[in-house]
Nucleic acid binder design. Structure first.
Lengths: 193, 193, 193, 193
DNA sequence: CAGTAAGCGAGACGGTACGTCCTGTCTTGGT
DNA sequence: ACCAAGACAGGACGTACCGTCTCGCTTACTG
């Protein structure tokens, strides 16, 4: 049986204050204006309490993502049975988030954080394109879409779609409806006439 | 007639020293260890000379990219006529660069720089997927690959491929041969039996 | 001929602000509440400007002493020709300073600073017992005081007197008139009947 | 009748570990590198155990002095009947301690501690010049030394001698044989021809 | 001989200050 | 006018300690 040390235990209050403060500052001012001192001040916490539990600010951001404190929730891929329609709707809802005044910097901040922290990178990929949603839907559509076949590498295809979004964020290209349509076409093939 | 200003003009020597110094430090230590003071010191230049001509360090990096001082050159898409073979070869040569010890951090640094500077983001996209190479080759292959049709949105397809690479870099996923094959399949369709 | 470097020169304004701020805080709160950050804040100066010119806070205090920013001025040994009377008057004026509410901590702070910085120690000794005043007066009195002879080691005798003061400060013993008289007697011998 | 509390009494083991650890660190690294956390760690003791029994680190040092854990023992004033010889021998033995590599910092550390704690100051004075040794010997010599008379204020004279030592430590002046001789002469008068 | 209250080790906590690094602006003297 | 050099005010870094506060344990007195 494991020997547990005695003494005080990690303060859940402090932990949550830190994550909330970090998420707030991140959303308000972006990743590179997110500082340990700022988090500590807003959370009402000593810096050491942060350094005790997280090795770097990117790890705090990663934990914020885990706690769903950073990204809006309405990004789930809908399921009407029509993959083309669902993808279009999903990309458009993403577009409204990403192309908003606050969304662009937020996404860029997330990508910046991902360059320092692999977990954030993976979460960025998975939270959009995880096996249970995007790739799975693509596989499920193999029967109805001639462009998609049973041996299509769905995971890579999903990744490519998400990657296209990332690239548009990085190049500040707008994600308007025409682009959404072309992206859907590029991935699932042209619409049947 | 306009009064032309007197005094010396911009020193080309200083400009090139600065870009070289920046490129070296960037390659050696990454974007976030790249500092104005470090550049000035290595370039043997006053800080003011840097601030006089560039508004931020990301703009210096952007100009380094323009001068081809940062990225290796062998990334041109080959052209044997076989799009599938060419893409595979191209991706593998990218993989050797990107999966090397120095390549991973360098790519992540570039992405980090892109989050601060739209030009870098665009250049990242275009230098890999510009209209004259990747997208053009995809369009040209429309005749031979059944998966690619005249109305396929090549630009977005090319972007998706590059985006997939970016996403793999961010998530530190290796880019081995099997992944390359699947990516090619995802983009240009399954190989004909 | 010496090659002088170009570039900006040390700011006299900053230097004086720092010394004033340090002297104020020292007088108000004592040596161990004197912090580099506190000095910088009150002086309206960056910390680096302090560290650029002084290796430690004790050196700032030493320079304050040099600039006569710390100790009151009325401590000069009077000269009426009567060494016994002059010493008594001088010690009493020191006593009023040292035994005041602010004087005790101030002297202790100076001693604390002296433990970190030999210059302060020497200045503490000399500013009270330097060759031109105390020791010189003792020597000059050799003719009139039987206790003092030409071969009396005046410097050490002066040092012993000052040392007695330091020791009283360290032990928080009051320096009342009776003690002053006994000290004078101990140093220059009993009064002639 | 008072309600006597129950529970364990103060741990003598802990008390001694703390004092030993404090004395060791004090001797090795000086008063300002002596920290409560360092003492606790070396003593294998919780910080609270220290704070429970001592209000500040200077009080720990004071108690170390009481337990004779800090100062070497050989500083007793010898007694051969010849006050001049005894004083000289005593001062020289102090000089070998004080002018050694470790002695100088140790004495300065003690003085630093004394600035925070009156007990240490008094002990510094008394442990060298207490009524039963130095002052008493001076009084006893009143018969044989013409410089010393029955009404000489011995206590202050002893204090002055010790103070001279303190001042030399503060100003980092060496305490060589010539200085010792002059100090003795200053205190007990010139040697008889 | 339980109950219970204090001492103990460990160490998390909110803080303060440290000394360093870098930012972007400015000043100086040289070319 | 431009440059190399670098001082300046300021902000953040990551570390060291402070003194207080839990924790779970052991110990010794008390009813």
């Amino acid at each position: 049986m494991a020997q547990t040390r005695s003494g005080p235990v990690r303060s859940e209050v402090a932990r949550r204050s830190i994550l909330s403060a970090a998420a707030e500052i991140f959303a308000e001012r972006g990743y590179d204006h997110l500082t340990i001192e700022g988090i500590a001040a807003r959370a009402g916490v000593g810096k050491q309490t942060i350094y005790r539990w997280w090795p770097s600010k990117s790890d705090i951001v990663a934990e914020c993502l885990l706690e769903r404190a950073l990204l809006p929730e309405q990004l789930a891929l809908p399921d009407t049975g029509d993959i083309r329609h669902d993808l279009t709707a999903w990309l458009r809802s993403i577009a409204t988030v990403v192309d908003s005044d606050s969304g662009q910097p937020l996404m860029r901040s997330l990508i910046a954080a991902a360059t320092e922290n692999a977990d954030i990178g993976r979460r960025l990929r998975d939270s959009l394109a995880d096996a249970d949603s995007l790739a799975a839907r693509l596989r499920a559509a193999a029967g109805t879409e001639p462009h998609l076949r049973p041996d299509t590498p769905y995971v890579e295809l999903a990744e490519a779609l998400v990657g296209a979004l990332v690239l548009r964020v990085l190049s500040r290209s707008p994600l308007d409806d025409a682009v959404v349509d072309r992206l859907v076409t590029a991935i699932v093939g042209p619409a049947r006439s």
